[in-house]
């Protein structure tokens, strides 16, 4: 029978947020933190494929909605990077998970939790994510005859909410992301694509789906991710 993912929830700041999970009774459990902003949309199918592949390796996985994203009822404008870090800590604690896999920008949304182990796929600096989003805003402004620049927009974003590629980002989240660098912790494994020339603990074949103009999947990459992740988690 094909495994069917189901929704459970976790509580954060007095609200319930959804969390997609594969319904397995395995004691091996991992939290899957999706990429940020539109990279999340482009990679969700790939991540669900990872969850199904993990299930076949007897690993249960949980994919939470971060506050202000996906089905969350909180306005993104109100959310800070600290909220995301606290929400992930709450979800991990409520579902008894200590292994955390993050993808791209979500590596920045995971704080160093006591006893947690971190598996990180193709991490990126917050400033890099924002730069791409600022560029789409500059391009849109130019089409409507406004001559804005990256530096002006960036300065504005630190003082008031700004709309970037369909997301309303508050000044605190903007400033926190802009300063956020790739974590360097003891209990972490960084995995990148074979085509990526940046330092990594392991490389896997696949394509940068976060750059793809339309959302797409890569079943071979999803399997490779699941195998590496399950191997790193080890037997329990």
């Amino acid at each position: 029978m094909t495994p069917v993912p189901a929704f459970v929830d976790y509580e954060f700041a007095g609200r319930k947020e959804l969390c997609l999970c594969t319904a397995t009774r395995s004691s091996r459990r991992v939290l899957i933190i999706p990429p940020l902003f539109d990279e999340m949309n482009r990679m969700r199918k790939m991540l669900v494929d990872v969850m199904l592949a993990l299930e076949s390796l007897d690993v249960a996985s949980f994919l939470p909605d971060l506050p202000g994203t996906n089905e969350s009822l909180v306005a993104l404008e109100q959310v800070t990077l600290t909220d995301w870090q606290d929400a992930i800590a709450a979800c991990a604690q409520q579902h008894h998970i200590s292994d955390i896999a993050s993808f791209r920008g979500s590596a920045l949304a995971v704080a160093a939790l006591p006893k947690a182990r971190h598996w990180i796929f193709s991490p990126v600096k917050g400033a890099t994510i924002l730069r791409t989003m600022l560029r789409t805003r500059v391009a849109a402004d130019r089409e409507s005859g406004l001559n804005t620049g990256l530096a002006d927009l960036s300065a504005q974003a630190e003082t008031r909410p700004i709309e970037l590629a369909g997301n309303i980002i508050g000044p605190e989240l903007f400033a926190q992301l802009n300063a956020a660098d790739i974590p360097d912790r003891e209990n972490q494994r960084i995995v990148r694509l074979e085509s990526d020339n940046k330092p990594a603990d392991a490389q896997i074949p696949g394509s940068a789906l976060w750059l793809r103009a339309e959302p797409d999947d890569d079943p071979a990459m999803s399997s490779a991710i699941a195998r590496d992740l399950a191997g790193w988690m080890g037997p329990q």
Binding site: D38, T128, R131, T132, R135, T136, A139, N197, L211, A213
Partner: peptide
């Protein structure tokens, strides 16, 4: 047609990075 403004923005940032 895939090269819309979002794709171009991603392309520029990726080239900067790589």
């Amino acid at each position: 047609p895939e090269l819309d403004s979002m794709a171009v923005a991603g392309l520029l940032t990726e080239l900067e990075d790589r």
